[in-house]
Design a protein around this nucleic acid. Sequence first.
DNA 1: TGGGGCGACACTGCATGCAATTTCCCTAAA
DNA 2: TTTAGGGAAATTGCATGCAGTGTCGCCCCA
Lengths: 243, 243
Amino acid sequence: MLATAASNSDKQTERLVLALRKRILNGEFSPGERLTELGLVSLLQASRTPIRLALERLANEGLLDAIPSGGFRLRLFGLADIRDAIEIRGVLEGTAVRFAAERLESAGELAQVKRLASEATMEIPITIEGFAQYLETNKRFHRELWRLAKSASLFRELEHACKIPFAAPEALVFGVEDLEQSTAFIAAEQHRAIVEAIENREGARAEALAREHSRISRRNLEFALRSKELSNRLPGLTLISDQ
Amino acid sequence: MLATAASNSDKQTERLVLALRKRILNGEFSPGERLTELGLVSLLQASRTPIRLALERLANEGLLDAIPSGGFRLRLFGLADIRDAIEIRGVLEGTAVRFAAERLESAGELAQVKRLASEATMEIPITIEGFAQYLETNKRFHRELWRLAKSASLFRELEHACKIPFAAPEALVFGVEDLEQSTAFIAAEQHRAIVEAIENREGARAEALAREHSRISRRNLEFALRSKELSNRLPGLTLISDQ
DNA sequence: TGGGGCGACACTGCATGCAATTTCCCTAAA
DNA sequence: TTTAGGGAAATTGCATGCAGTGTCGCCCCA
């Protein structure tokens, strides 16, 4: 019926990837559970062909594992897996900002990151919309850092690494009364320092800073796992199984 | 006819992935060229369904690009892309050996890498089989390093990053009369030093060594691009376009 | 001769039928 | 009670038809 003749942004498959990912993160399947094509047909109102394609994509995102004899099952995530994924993201972002420092041509290229960094320096608003705005700014700041690396290969790897739940820089930023303001200040200071390092062509410093910056996410992850209320607010936390 | 009901190791799709990758690296398609499903049907003797799946997989390996309006085209590789891919592999392997150093429990775990390292220390044999053996040992040494990191997430990212042509550690090891013996010695010394650093829990040193080690590949790449004979021997070199 | 519009072809996305294999349950025997 | 075996249902892999859209070239007009 609706065939847009697009392989990447086609309506059906793309819709299915989003819908499935959402359901998975919402905890609608148990870790290790097999996802059969026919079962999803009735659940997602689509034919087997696009469903298979969506499963394939989610598998190489890392959400699903391919079963040797065929089909896919929900991947088992341990706390260690997520922690490592965050660390890897930090390593790659560190490389990105090192590249950015090494490849900077003019200070003018930093206008956008500087703007985004200063935006996020402001106090976190209490309102929901304000907080969503803060999240968005934070995400755009990180993406801008990726862009400044001027490396298509690195950009690809960063995108791939951030598909893992909670690995993305914007995944574990949340407002808890205690942490909220202080971690926001720390993060803003780190952002500022990273940009400064890039501007001064201090590649090694920028790299070290970006790595350390990623460990805010690790800290937040461990905090979230100890907090009941957050478990309810953060979809996907139920995926983390052992310890 | 032959349906093995396997999604990962199924006969048809897997065969197609291998066949297509081989043909691509052999330069049977020109960079940027669109690969149509029907065109491949007659070329590869298979139906559209498994061909589509194979294209999808090659696309997220990074060999193909998805066309926004549908279908896939051969990706355009610049020299900079390959260089960055090698650097990224070095960064990830650096992280792997740092993890290995940080997570080493007993020196006994290093028996296998030590054996592989000492095997590759030997003189490179002149015969073809001997050289193939050397390549295999080198590959297994690196894979063993990955394993020692004890991180499924990192292993995944390393495998993904090494799908790019010439990014894998074993991709650009070749015997050229001038470089052959000297680079082999240098590589062997670096291997030895990396293992030593892991054994001593010197994570930062191991990381730095692994990064530098990857630059042998970069050097070999640049050498290969200047050498006509090598261009003929190394499939895929024709994929690198600009500059 | 150049540019714009229109039409035909080519290509992709989706649906579905078929065949083969896996999986699981139930039974029976040790 | 546990294990081995067999068979039926479930599930995947593959092939192919159909519909819709993108693309390219040709023709007409200025």
